[in-house]
Write a protein that binds this DNA or RNA. Structure first.
Length: 729
RNA sequence: GCGCGAUUAGCUCAGUUGGUAGAGCAAUCGAUUUACACUCGAAAGGUCGGGGGUUCGAGUCCCUCAUCGCGCACCA
């Protein structure tokens, strides 16, 4: 027996060493497995992309859980003999990264405009590079068996070509257009953001009623009312039956007399307020739609910094917060204020990244049209034929509806459909500097959309960048070499499974389905497995301000990556949030040590055991029982019940194998008749336990495996490439 | 407003297709110098949120209510 077993298991020394040995073997790369003769070249493929972490800093426990779950699947399939690819990378995360760097610069008293675009981008790239390096080392530290030789970045040269190719195709098909439409403007970040990047915050505010000619209108935002010259009511509202659509009224308003026009529109809720409202099409999505329907004028009231424009007369130049009380005061003095409700609850849209209060604005932006029909040339989607016409919405819906993509837990399919039904055109241009520059060039009134810039002089590229999800939407195939028809693409796409958090179902999962069904006519993955969020022991979200963040690398250093992984897996159902405390991680460190001592007992009691000599057979009662458990565990893993599989193994190894079988074996080992068959059974159970536990606790199992008699030294002898202990269909 | 989830032992949670309630932690009692004190054993602890229904049988299926949490929409 190796002397190492005389002291307790030491994850700190073991884990980094094992991690290096795995990488040196090259077996995270499936082609190396084939070259070494471990699997045949026609083995079935299992492929998965790592959801690329944002290069905004370091990984948290949520990432660690994701890595653990995915590594379980990957190691299981690798041992099963599949051609297994887990493809890693990072996400430039455009606005998230840029605002992080801006905040850091602010601490030094530097603003991005002082640096200029080029210099600022250099700073962002330095930051991104540093984050990337940290993240990569963290992924390695957790034992994740990703194929580094294929590592990708959403903003590298190869992905840039993919992004531009995708953009051009969509543009040529009329699915990307540039237009003056209402968008979400973030005055703080000085950029537009998509509907999905909004965070609604409940706010208590005053709600004002003003006299508007013969009507009373209600508003929480008096400062937008300057340009209001349309008064809208429901066509069926009997209270206002005497007014006709298009009727003109002369009335007194904030800065003097105006001519107002009556509009009848069904968007009005008769129950709300007085059933009458004036509209501000430039700063409200609903108002914008009404204005579009009736071809009404639109006027801008508030500028991009949140200040009133000259249309506000004496109030021009004031900020919203300053202007509001003064405007109310003026209306009151003119006798136009009817009443004020004090505690009006409403929701304010804020920007997810900057916290800025969103001001809807009409701006010239780039959009993806999700409702426009186009002709699909090559379709591998069931129910969609080559040459058929469809919209992006229809493709996204079809891929899940026809069962080609399965979302787990399946309740999220409903959520997904609901999101598609409410989906509006996707605003993809951002007024930030970090990201893929919009691949469009202008010269006078000429426009060029392409993968390459025009050769001649005088063309200027669009200054905007693309929404970060535009590039991550291509991830399953841009990482495999698309737009080229590569071998990787043929072998590994569609990917087998996508494992990610339910919080990015819309942001990312839906966009990948959009991009893949459109550009490839195929699904990006067959199964989506959604995990929950990691919370602290009290069920709170982990955040810096609460000071309850647990760093996965700290935990790995303290208790071992194996223990951290187990704590993140056990007790976690798909789609459910999990609570994690340091005590739980500690408990699995004890388990690692238990496994270590089991080995110590088995090896020290079988030094005279000769595996070649099977004259006395094996104590089959134990091994048969374990085989049944292993079959059960295998089926749990195949059906994504990792928490059950892990728990069953934990329970068996500790409370059956150690507490009962080993205790019983002590007497049997003393009996010369039974000694050999007992040893054979103990060895067999230990070996199979290590194999089955390997996907969960890869480090300690690999280490013990390498110290078992007869398992010597060569890379292809490593446990990570051993055969799974029971047959799998 | 629409939808989803949760509610099971003091705490954290399992319970896969309906077949007499489970684990871990905590608390209680006991054991223990050779695999392991980073240990082992024992006992204790629940009318499975309330009510109704389907069924021979419901924690599990259906209806309803309550509390908590989440998503989406609206918010003039």
């Amino acid at each position: 027996m190796n002397d190492k077993f005389l002291t307790p298991y030491n994850p700190q020394e073991t884990e980094p060493r094992i991690a290096r040995a795995w990488e040196d073997s090259g077996f995270f790369n499936p082609e190396k497995m084939i070259a070494a003769g471990i699997i045949p070249s026609d083995a079935p493929a299992f492929s998965m992309v790592l959801p690329p972490p944002n290069v905004t800093g370091t990984l948290h426990l949520g990432h660690a859980m994701m890595l653990a779950v995915q590594d379980i699947m990957v190691r299981f399939h690798r041992m099963k003999g599949d051609k297994t690819l887990w493809l890693p990378g990072t996400d430039h995360a455009a606005i998230a990264t840029q605002s992080k760097v801006e905040k850091n610069l602010q601490k030094e008293g530097v603003r991005k405009h002082d640096l200029g675009r080029e210099e600022f981008l250099k700073r962002v790239e330095e930051f991104a590079q540093a984050s990337h390096d940290t993240i990569v080392s963290q992924v390695r530290r957790m034992g994740s068996s990703v194929d580094w030789s294929r590592e990708a970045f959403t903003l590298d040269k190869i992905r840039e070509r993919a992004v531009r190719t995708a953009f051009k195709r969509m543009y040529d098909d009329g699915l990307i257009y540039r237009g003056d439409r209402i968008i979400n403007w973030d005055p703080k970040g000085q950029t537009t953001i998509s509907d999905d990047e909004l965070v609604y915050v409940d706010e208590k505010t005053k709600f004002y009623y003003f006299k508007y000619g013969p009507f009373t209108i209600g508003t929480a935002r008096p400062e937008t009312k300057f340009g209001d010259k349309y008064v809208v009511m429901h066509p069926d509202d009997k209270r206002y039956a005497e007014y006709r659509n298009g009727q003109k009224l002369e009335l007194e308003w904030i800065n003097g007399p105006i001519t107002a026009t009556v509009i009848k529109d069904e968007a009005i809720d008769m129950e709300f307020g007085t059933g009458v409202m004036t509209i501000t099409p430039w700063h409200s999505a609903i108002d914008f739609e009404i204005a579009e329907r009736h071809e009404l004028d639109k006027e801008q009231i508030i500028d991009q910094y949140g200040k009133l424009l000259p249309i506000a007369g004496e109030f021009a130049g004031l900020k919203i917060s300053e202007a509001r009380p003064k405007i109310v005061e003026k209306l009151e003095s003119k006798g136009l204020l009817v009443k004020v409700e004090e505690d009006y609850m409403h929701r304010v849209a804020t920007a997810e990244r900057t916290g800025g209060i969103i001001e809807p604005q009409i701006m010239k932006q780039w959009f993806v049209d999700v409702k426009k029909e186009f002709t699909i040339l090559h379709s591998k989607l069931s129910g969609i034929a080559d040459g058929q016409k469809a919209t992006l919405k229809e493709l996204m819906r079809a891929a899940v509806e026809n069962g080609q993509i399965k979302i787990l837990p399946d309740r999220f399919e409903k959520v997904y459909f609901h999101w598609i039904d409410n989906l509006r055109d996707w605003n993809i241009s951002r007024q930030i500097w970090y990201g893929h520059r919009v691949p469009v060039w202008y010269k006078g009134d000429k426009i060029h959309v392409g993968v390459e810039a025009p050769q001649e002089e005088g063309w200027e590229q669009d200054p905007d960048t693309l929404d970060t999800w535009f590039s991550s939407g291509l991830w399953t195939f841009s990482t495999l070499g698309w737009p080229d028809e590569t071998d990787d693409l043929k072998t590994y796409h569609p990917t087998t499974i996508l494992e990610t958090g339910y919080d990015i179902l819309f942001f990312w999962v839906a966009r990948m389905i959009l991009m893949s069904t459109y550009l490839l006519g195929d699904i990006p993955f067959k199964t989506v497995y959604l995990h929950g969020l990691v919370r602290d022991a009290q069920g709170r979200k982990m955040s810096k301000s609460l000071g309850n963040i647990i760093d996965p690398v700290d935990m790995a250093d303290k208790y071992g990556a194996d223990a951290t992984r187990m704590a993140l897996i056990i007790g976690t159902g798909p789609g459910n949030d999990i609570r994690l405390s340091e005590d739980k991680i500690k408990a699995y460190k004890l388990f690692a040590n238990k496994l270590w001592n089991i080995t110590r007992f088995v090896l020290s009691n079988s030094e005279d055991f000769d595996p070649q000599d099977d004259s006395s057979g094996m104590h089959a009662e134990w091994t048969d029982e374990f085989e049944n458990i292993l079959k059960d565990v295998t089926s749990d893993i195949e059906n994504y019940r990792f928490y059950l599989a892990g728990e069953k193994l934990y329970h068996y190894v500790w409370h059956r194998f150690a507490d009962q079988i080993i205790e019983e074996s002590k007497a049997m080992l003393q009996d010369p008749q039974k000694r050999r068959q007992t040893q054979a059974a103990l060895r067999k159970i230990l070996a199979d336990s290590l194999k089955a536990l390997h996907p969960f606790m890869p480090f300690i199992t690999e280490e013990i495996w390498s110290l078992m008699p007869g398992n010597g030294g060569k890379p292809e002898d490593m446990l990570m490439v051993e055969k799974w202990p029971v047959k799998v269909q």
